[in-house]
Measured scan of single mutants.
Amino acid sequence: GMDVRRLKVNELREELQRRGLDTRGLKAELAERLQAALSGPSSG
């Protein structure tokens, strides 16, 4: 899988935006949010 901790802030935001998620917050928050999205149930 993707290691969200290795991504830069702008990369985290890009991935979040692609999934329609909130791109605001600290890098740690963005990484946590993206990780949750990646490990969560895949819809679609």
Rank of each mutant, 00 (worst) to 15 (best):
G1N: 12
G1D: 09
G1F: 11
G1S: 13
G1C: 15
M2D: 06
M2P: 08
M2Q: 07
D3L: 11
D3Q: 09
D3T: 08
D3Y: 09
D3K: 11
V4C: 11
V4W: 08
R5A: 10
R5P: 05
R5N: 10
R6A: 09
R6D: 06
L7N: 00
L7D: 01
L7V: 02
L7M: 15
K8P: 05
K8N: 15
K8V: 04
V9A: 07
V9R: 06
V9Q: 04
N10W: 15
N10K: 15
E11V: 06
E11K: 08
L12P: 00
L12V: 02
L12R: 00
L12E: 01
L12I: 07
R13T: 04
R13N: 01
R13Y: 05
E14F: 14
E14C: 15
E14L: 14
E15V: 04
E15G: 02
E15Q: 09
E15S: 04
E15K: 04
L16N: 00
L16K: 01
Q17I: 06
Q17H: 13
Q17D: 06
Q17W: 13
R18F: 04
R19I: 05
R19A: 03
R19G: 02
G20S: 04
G20C: 08
G20E: 03
L21P: 01
L21S: 02
D22L: 06
D22Y: 04
D22P: 11
D22H: 06
T23H: 08
T23A: 06
R24Y: 06
R24S: 14
R24F: 06
G25V: 01
G25R: 03
L26G: 15
L26I: 11
K27S: 05
K27G: 05
K27E: 09
A28R: 13
E29A: 09
E29T: 08
E29F: 04
E29Q: 10
E29D: 08
E29H: 06
L30H: 01
L30D: 00
L30V: 01
A31D: 02
A31T: 07
A31G: 04
A31E: 11
E32Y: 09
E32I: 11
E32F: 10
E32A: 15
R33M: 02
R33K: 03
R33I: 02
L34Q: 01
L34K: 00
Q35S: 09
Q35M: 15
Q35N: 07
A36V: 08
A36Q: 11
A36W: 08
A36L: 12
A37S: 06
A37K: 03
A37N: 05
A37H: 09
L38N: 03
L38S: 03
L38T: 04
S39M: 13
S39W: 10
S39R: 14
G40I: 11
G40F: 10
S42K: 11
S42E: 11
S42L: 11
S42I: 12
S43K: 11
S43F: 12
S43N: 12
S43T: 12
G44W: 14
G44R: 10
G44Q: 12
